[in-house]
Design a protein around this nucleic acid. Structure first.
Length: 307
DNA sequence: TTCCAGGGGTAGA
DNA sequence: TCTACCCATGGA
């Protein structure tokens, strides 16, 4: 069967910095995502609800005043109207095109200095098309180095992801059903994620059985504290992971304090003395609902010198 | 060999 | 709510 191509354009909110969004944190290089720096293009295999597998090529488009995201989809067989809408919904979620950052930008402008650069369309930290994928990836970031996270996620995709037809090297992120169908022993032996294996497997089983509604975490009406409590109910999710998940859900009032954060705060704000967590939280307290983004771009500016 | 990483679960206080 | 202890894995 011949490969067909479809192209979609998503309108993005101005200001919108495509590369700054795609490469906003490590997610862009975690399988099945891949980043081609020479073309400023993100590619990813997506398994659609109707069963079709598409290879997506996602790039920035439009103009500064009317920014957009171009999605090139390669697939076998025609896409239905619903398939096309699903692709756009998924990319829209990944790049947070519905999120409003005006108040955050206003706060950055008020602070001045390097913060003004953030208002050029940064601040939308890349996420996954599904909450399930984000939670699995967050669990794979805990108590390991970044190289370990990449290895675990690649192994998971390789072992249980559906291959893109004609190029078995590229696969979609595994459906929870695929993980749940494997026994825990087999799963743990194939993916090698150590003590995290039972957590990820149990999560997949609970989602498959309908005991856990991951997409329900997007509930915009729920208070952050309630979502945090629900997140902490998932095995493998503690304070750091819950704050990271809340960030991916668009709630920035919790700070994800990890070893990177501790080391950064120690050097920049405490003259080499190790602060306790309460002291770290206090640094960004006055950013209110934007605390996480404030920390993230404080770290980013310090690390890169500039955006 | 030993340490530890973008921590978390559990038991016990 | 806090602390101590244990948890697999792989890189340094």
């Amino acid at each position: 069967m011949t490969r067909l191509q479809s192209v979609f354009h998503l309108a993005a909110p101005a200001p919108f910095h495509f590369e700054g969004t795609a490469y906003s944190h490590g997610w862009v290089v975690l399988a099945p995502n891949a980043w081609d720096a020479s073309r400023a293009t993100m590619t990813r295999v997506e398994r659609l609800g109707g069963g079709k597998i598409a290879l997506l090529e996602i790039t920035g488009a439009g103009t500064p005043r009317k920014p957009a995201i171009r999605i090139g989809a390669t697939h076998r067989g025609r896409l239905s109207g619903e398939d096309g809408l699903e692709i756009q919904r998924r990319v829209s979620r990944m790049f947070r095109v519905d999120e409003r950052l005006e108040d955050f930008y206003a706060e950055c402008r008020a602070r001045g200095g390097g913060w003004v650069k953030v208002t050029a369309g940064y601040g939308r930290l890349l996420r996954s098309p599904t909450v399930f994928e984000d939670v699995v990836k967050i669990i794979c970031t805990t108590n390991t180095q970044w190289g370990g996270t990449k290895r675990m996620v690649s192994g998971l995709v390789e072992a249980y992801g559906e291959p893109y037809p004609g190029d078995g090297m590229r696969k979609a992120f595994p459906a929870p059903e695929a993980i749940a169908a494997a026994g825990l022993d087999e799963f743990a032996a194939r993916v090698r994620m150590g003590y995290r294996a039972p957590y990820v497997h149990e999560l997949a089983v609970r989602v498959t059985r309908g005991e856990l509604d991951m997409e329900g975490f997007r509930n915009k009406g729920a208070p952050t504290a309630e979502l945090r409590k629900q997140a902490l109910g998932i095995k493998g999710i503690g304070n750091y992971a819950a704050a990271t998940l809340l960030m991916l859900l668009g709630r920035y009032d919790c700070l994800a304090v990890d070893s990177v954060c501790r080391e950064f705060a120690k050097k920049k704000y405490f003259a080499g003395r190790a602060p306790d967590d309460a002291e770290i939280h206090a640094i960004y307290e006055d950013w209110g609902e934007w605390r996480y983004l404030a920390y993230w771009f404080d770290l980013w500016q310090d690390f890169n010198g500039e955006l």
